[in-house]
Design a protein around this nucleic acid. Structure first.
Lengths: 218, 218
DNA sequence: CGGAGCCTTGATGTTAGTCAAGCCTAGTGG
DNA sequence: CCACTAGGCTTGACTAACATCAAGGCTCCG
């Protein structure tokens, strides 16, 4: 939560007020949904530990992974527009989230302008992140998509104070493929090729970035 | 502007307050940018007449169309997260926009909760719309993408009180291709095939939907 | 009326998808 | 603690879809 708010101009005092909103935390076992598409929207969440994916279903049963949330990142904004969640959020590993009731958060945003500012930025960031992902899906090759994804995760890890070079990606190859608009086989082949080229070192879900610049130039 | 706000719980009185914010309108000739990626973010816009595309550039010069805005739709939200616009907005035809200064809008949102509500929904809608487009790009075939796009435009036209069956799409085949993650040739071929199948009737940029259900089933 | 940009269509090439088989690993139960 | 199993991962051979290259026609604007 501090992760999510501190670096953005909230005073300790204001942060304390925010923390009074957080009714509770909730733990979500691996594979379970925090909320499902169609559920009523009441809360925004912050991932406290673990990681989650957001999934959207097309009519016709096809599903696509639309996002990955690491610890410290916000979740649930897809419900604001319609009072109903547009995605489902599923835990990639045993995870915990903080629960922030939306109605209370709105009031706080009207009282405290820095809180309003933070809320707008949170929404704006997701808009820009998704637009960037549209670019990835619309104009990059398979190799470029995988490289962009690894670099994105690496950078987000760094931002949260973890290693940018080495991490556990709890998504399956299928999840990655879905997120990147390709098949799990192509993801696997691409990672293997990157490894042969000395760009990364993979051992299943454990990934080490060996040649950051090389990866950037893919 | 009323388009953008009226159906969403603002009273006439409140709407009047909003209208005091609108410093001015601005006209944007076809092909010109309302704002460019990297420009400082000061205003949100509403398309008053005409239509615009939003474009995002990748390092390496590659550009992708990330959105289409018809009259009555909002524009510029990509600047909130960073105080700098992440996309460029380019007029597809001679267009006019209303200018809403963001700082003033924020104040109004703190005063009037229905205004805050509207603002959040606006942001939330874009988040959901972009997620849906990620699905289109990530998991649909070329035919399905084009069909989904035509249906989307048709529906948005209907919402604004225009014909859902017949419209002028001012994007070029290249713009459509970019937005849909395919080449202009594939767009053209797909439209031709749809026409042969009796789904649509195209004459350059003028499009008439002949068989709505057929298009939905593509 | 002329021309530039846009659109269409065809032939060919390339990338990533599909199908298939076997292996590895983590989690389970004895 | 070990063996078993199921799900996940890798790799190969083949295929399909879409991109690329190319040429010609249309249309809209000046």
């Amino acid at each position: 939560m501090r992760q999510l708010c501190m670096p953005h101009g909230l005073s300790c005092d204001e942060l304390a007020k925010l923390e009074t909103l957080i009714c509770s935390a909730r733990s979500v076992p691996r594979g379970e949904a925090l909320y499902r598409s169609g559920d009523r929207f009441d809360n925004i969440y912050a991932v406290r530990s673990g990681s989650m994916k957001t999934v959207m279903a097309h009519r016709g049963g096809r599903e696509q992974v639309t996002g990955l949330r690491l610890a410290g990142e916000a979740l649930g904004l897809d419900g604001i527009s319609n009072d109903v969640h547009a995605c489902s959020a599923v835990a990639l590993e045993d995870s915990t989230v903080c629960i922030v009731p939306y109605t209370a958060l709105k009031s706080l945003c009207r009282e405290i302008s820095s809180m309003q500012e933070r809320m707008h930025k949170l929404l704006g960031e997701q808009i820009v992140r998704e637009a960037a992902q549209m670019m990835v899906l619309g104009s990059l090759s398979a190799d470029e998509r995988v490289a962009a994804f690894l670099l994105d995760v690496s950078e987000r890890n760094a931002q949260r104070g973890y290693s940018s070079a080495e991490f556990n990606l709890r998504m399956t190859r299928e999840d990655m493929g879905s997120y990147l608009g390709m098949t799990l086989e192509t993801v696997s082949r691409t990672l293997s090729r990157f490894q042969k080229r000395g760009l990364i070192d993979t051992q299943g879900k454990h990934i080490r970035i060996v040649d950051l610049d090389g990866l950037r130039q893919v």
